[in-house]
């Protein structure tokens, strides 16, 4: 490694939310991530896109160590992700994640889904955790369903609950892994609106999504990945208006023609 750049030293000082350097990852013999460098500043909104199998989901799953990486460094809010479980849990309780399949806990009510981690990880008093949960459920406009079970809600409603559940841990960073891909078309908007609201509040966000309208409206930077590499990254106007690489041009023509 070279001498620390000014950017990197500021990152360690805490102005950088996520710092990824020289990240490589293999599934068996197959290399899914190749020497990725990516810095996400506090409050920045990043959209990652790319063809399936490009490694974009794996990349954000590395950020809260749902996937361990083999080479390179990941530093989240000043904490480096290593095999040290304490550090990993510190990062995880500070980074919210929303999944494609919602992954709500089916045996718990909506409210219990939201209070589980605050009560058991943050040791918050139950009443206080419930207050916070109700406020956040209110914000994603689903407070009236608080005592139902996830199985009784629509996909869009479940995904909004999943967002509220992540917010209940008061994270400073939110990761979204294709949050609208498993939804019926008419439910995509309600989830995107919730995410736009969140972006408006200054949350640091990294979203893997194919919703290019969302990327245009919200992203500070759009990252295009292909075959495990970051091919191109740029602000949305430039990204969509003047793509530099042939691979991105082909990708954009494929998804924008739909």
């Amino acid at each position: 490694m070279n001498a620390p750049s000014p950017l990197r030293s500021r990152a360690e000082a805490g102005e950088t939310a996520i710092l990824i350097e020289g990240l490589s990852k293999w599934f068996g013999d197959f290399q899914v991530l190749r020497d990725i460098d990516l810095t996400v500043r506090k409050g920045e909104r990043i959209v990652a896109c790319g063809p399936s199998g490009s490694g974009k989901s794996t990349l954000i799953r590395c950020v809260n160590r749902l996937e361990p990486h083999q080479r390179g460094r990941i530093v989240v809010s000043g904490v480096e992700l290593t095999d040290d479980l304490k550090q990993v849990d510190a990062v995880r309780s500070n980074v919210g994640m929303v999944f494609q399949q919602f992954n709500l806990f089916p045996h718990l009510t909506v409210l219990e889904n939201c209070t589980l981690a605050p009560v058991w990880v943050r040791r918050a008093p139950r009443a206080q955790a419930q207050d916070l949960a109700m406020r956040l459920l209110e914000r994603v406009r689903i407070a009236d369903q608080a005592h139902k079970y996830p199985g009784q809600l629509s996909g869009g409603q479940q995904q909004r609950v999943a967002i509220a559940r992540a917010l209940c841990m008061s994270p400073t960073i939110m990761l979204f892994d294709e949050p609208t891909s498993a939804l019926d078309p008419e439910m995509v908007k309600e989830v995107l609106d919730t995410m736009i609201m969140l972006a408006g509040e200054g949350m640091t966000m990294v979203c893997v999504t194919h919703e290019m309208g969302f990327a245009r409206a919200v992203a500070d930077r759009v990252v295009f990945m292909d075959q495990g590499e970051i091919v191109e990254q740029a602000p949305p106007e430039e990204f969509f208006g003047a793509p530099r690489s042939e691979r991105l041009r082909r990708f954009l023509s494929q998804i924008l023609d739909r």
Binding site: L85, D89, R92, S93, M97, Q101, F105, V121, A166
Partner: peptide, 14 residues
């Protein structure tokens, strides 16, 4: 489902 483990891990439940 695996997603249940991942969601719980992502919340820092350990």
């Amino acid at each position: 489902p695996r997603g249940q483990y991942e969601a719980a891990q992502a919340l820092g439940l350990g």
